[in-house]
Design a protein around this nucleic acid. Structure first.
Length: 648
RNA sequence: GCCGACGUAGCUCAGGGGUAGAGCGCUUCCUUGGUAAGGAAGAGGCCACGAGUUCAAAUCUCGUCGUUGGCUCCA
């Protein structure tokens, strides 16, 4: 007999050789029906794995991430089989489960596949699923595995196997299909009741663009047809919050082919929104001891040679602008730091002057590959809410923590609750990629980790994600479709102070090297507005709204009173507009609702007589008639409630 | 940059080898209204751009540009 410990702590005895599924059956029939995969002593096992020792068993269903993973990984096998049957001779590579579904990377050789082929592939997959094939794991020797795939003429699998330890290689069979596989499958293919292929894309073998490009087929599957429908509906909902769609509808920004790709044009309402964000941050920064500076949009090539950016990115950047006759070379600035270093260098500093905090909403231009451009989240010209802090090494910890406070204040005021902090460290294996001494890197990395810990941030550590000049702490937020974007960033830099020979006079009357912190709480105005749009669906916090109220007149007869109301709104610093068109009030309300105006002030005969406005909130709530003063007080209360306070 | 898809009126989209279509928006007129679309008339298009095939191309083919889902990249 063996003792099996379940997650609730209970211990049950079973015959040696009892399968995972049989354990589930002993608990309940329902569980046995729903169990998709399991872990035994922390190792992924199949549901038909025979248990031979004592141990901890965790069973997973569709409600667990592990269960979904097994479901989608198994679906990838079915996809592979379907593809192989429909397109003989293709070469399979890898097919993992991902956050939402699965994909399989395939070398189609001469054959082509497009979205038009999805229906027939989906049908084939469902046909295979319905046959309820069981997944069988089988151990094979390295030799055997290699010869199997050499016979199939599949160099990808051969390469994978060559990197595996003999003895740890398993194949998975179902139906007539065999695949190299580590395990973690459904009991049988019959669980897969709904399948949808999502897209086809190119993907390089092993993620390296020097390798051959494979065709990646993305799909998702569900245990019930209804769940697929719900998922697709969810995607439709997400599309409604797409910042590109909202930006157009709310007239915030646009793009022009003539101006150039990746170069956003901010429309008046968008510019007003942006300005408000800038002022909000400027106010907080002033409180936190920052000073505004201004630097030009271009700089001599020499500046970037000094900073090291030219050597690193020169080839992949917009190429230098040349003067007509002297042949001097200037670069569009891809970042503000070198300029700010020179601002620091304009004065000699004592340790008593530090830290110096130079802030600038600096517009920068970067050559991004055309395929990488995406709405406002990835553009070629954008404005960073940049600042550089120059401090003594002793001040670094504290300054870093202060910046975290500022970022948290910004995120809090704008309602970003669900962000992850990512500590990006250098890749120890590939130190060539980075500049600066080992010692400095270590100091900087520790400073970041300590600050993140002390501020109680929920952080993840990513090695190899650091900038080439220093480690960083990034604040990641997801968009409507769940893609992660970096917004705020804080980076420690020991390198530029060295290269620009920045100094300050210490208490010992000696020259010392300051430490530099790069930071941008929004990241960039463009990306921040984009993500804010997707999070709020365009219903920004009231203080940010381009227009806070609209006066809707019942008919043209009340034009005069409408104007009077608008003037009063202006007096109370409420951003208002009016709709005096010859249309019914019903229509005006509908349009104001669709334009996401927070407050509608309806004026007619009654209001004019009483000197009031009838207030309707976005969404339909009727607050009744009130004098403008009262409305102004209401707005102010709402604004004050949403703005967090920033203490230094 | 690479793989796939897409580009028709200001917007959202239908159509498709032989006068270019709808809804919304816009203009004018009627109507002067009470909380999510009042009525009528009208203007508006080189069907992204450039070649080719064809008696004939918005439609088919190729190329360019742009958009888009991924990959790679992201100072």
């Amino acid at each position: 007999m063996i003792k099996i410990t379940l997650p609730d702590g209970s211990i049950k005895e079973f015959e040696q050789g009892t399968t995972v599924l049989e354990v589930a059956e002993s608990i309940s029939q329902g569980l046995a029906r729903n169990v998709l995969s399991a872990k035994f002593n922390g190792e992924t096992v199949e549901t038909k794995t025979k248990l031979t020792t004592d141990g901890d068993l965790v069973l997973f269903t569709w409600n667990d991430d592990e269960g979904k993973k097994a479901f989608w990984h198994s679906s990838a096998h079915v996809l592979a089989q379907a593809l192989q049957e429909l397109y003989p001779g293709i070469k399979l590579t890898i097919g993992p489960a991902i956050e939402n579904g699965f994909y399989y990377d395939v070398d189609f050789g001469e054959q082509k596949i497009s979205e038009n082929d999805f229906k027939k592939i989906e049908d084939k997959m469902l046909e295979i699923s319905r046959q309820k094939h069981e997944f069988e794991m089988r151990e094979v020797s390295k030799q055997e595995a290699l010869s199997f795939y050499k016979k199939e003429n599949n160099p990808y699998k051969v390469e994978l196997i060559e990197n595996l330890e003999d003895g740890a290689i398993t194949f998975c069979d179902h139906s007539t299909f065999t695949d190299l596989c580590r395990g973690g499958h459904l009991p049988n293919t019959g669980k897969i009741k709904a399948v949808k292929l999502m897209s086809v894309a190119g993907a390089y073998w092993r993620g390296d663009e020097h390798n051959p490009q494979l065709t990646r087929v993305y799909g998702i599957s569900f245990p019930k047809q209804k769940e697929l429908k719900e998922y697709l509906a969810l995607l439709e909902e997400a599309k409604k919050r797409d910042h590109r769609k909202l930006g157009k509808e709310l007239q915030l920004f646009t793009f022009s082919q003539k101006v150039g790709q990746g170069l956003p044009l901010w429309l008046p309402k968008g510019a007003a929104l942006r300005e408000r964000l800038e002022n909000f941050l400027k106010k907080a920064q002033q409180k936190a001891g920052y000073e505004q500076v201004v630097s030009p949009h271009i700089g001599q090539k020499e500046l970037y040679v000094t900073s090291g950016h030219y050597a690193k990115y020169g080839e992949d950047s917009f190429q230098p602008i040349k003067t007509p006759s002297e042949n001097e070379e200037f670069l569009l600035k891809p970042m503000n730091c070198p300029h700010h270093c020179e601002i620091y260098n304009a004065t000699s500093w004592s340790y008593r002057d530090l830290p110096k905090r130079f802030a600038e909403f600096g517009t920068v231009y970067r050559y991004e590959q055309s395929g990488e451009l995406h709405g406002l989240t990835r553009v070629r010209g954008f404005t960073q809410d940049d600042a550089h802090i120059f401090c003594t090494p002793d001040q670094l910890d504290e300054e870093f923590k202060k910046v975290i406070d500022l970022v948290l204040y910004v995120f809090g005021s704008l309602g970003f609750e669900n962000f992850t902090a990512q500590v990006s460290l250098r890749d120890q294996e590939d130190k060539e990629k980075y500049i600066g001494s080992d010692e400095n890197w270590e100091k900087a990395e520790n400073a970041i980790i300590n600050a993140a810990k002390e501020k109680g941030l929920n952080y993840v550590v990513e090695t190899g994600e650091a900038a080439f000049y220093g480690p960083k702490l990034d604040f990641m937020v997801k968009d409507a479709l769940g893609r992660s974007w970096q917004l705020g960033t804080i980076q420690v830099d020991y390198n530029l102070p060295e290269r620009f020979e920045l100094t300050y006079k210490g208490s010992d009357n000696e020259e010392h090297r300051p430490v530099m912190i790069h930071r941008a709480p929004f990241g960039s105005m463009e990306r921040f507005v984009a993500i804010l749009l997707e999070h709020t669906g365009g219903n920004f916090p009231l203080w940010l709204m381009p227009e806070q109220a609209i006066v809707l007149s019942l008919s043209e007869k009340y034009e005069k009173y409408t104007k009077k109301v608008l003037n009063l709104l202006e007096k109370y610093e409420i951003r208002g507009t009016s709709d005096n068109r010859n249309e019914t009030v019903g229509k005006k309300i509908r349009e104001a609702e669709m334009n996401k105006l927070p407050y509608m002030l309806i004026v007619g005969e009654q209001e004019e007589k009483d000197g009031t406005v009838s207030v309707r909130k976005h969404g339909g709530e009727d607050l009744g008639a009130m004098p403008i003063e009262e409305f102004a007080a209401l707005i102010n209360r709402e604004i004050n409630a949403s703005l967090k306070t920033f203490e230094v």
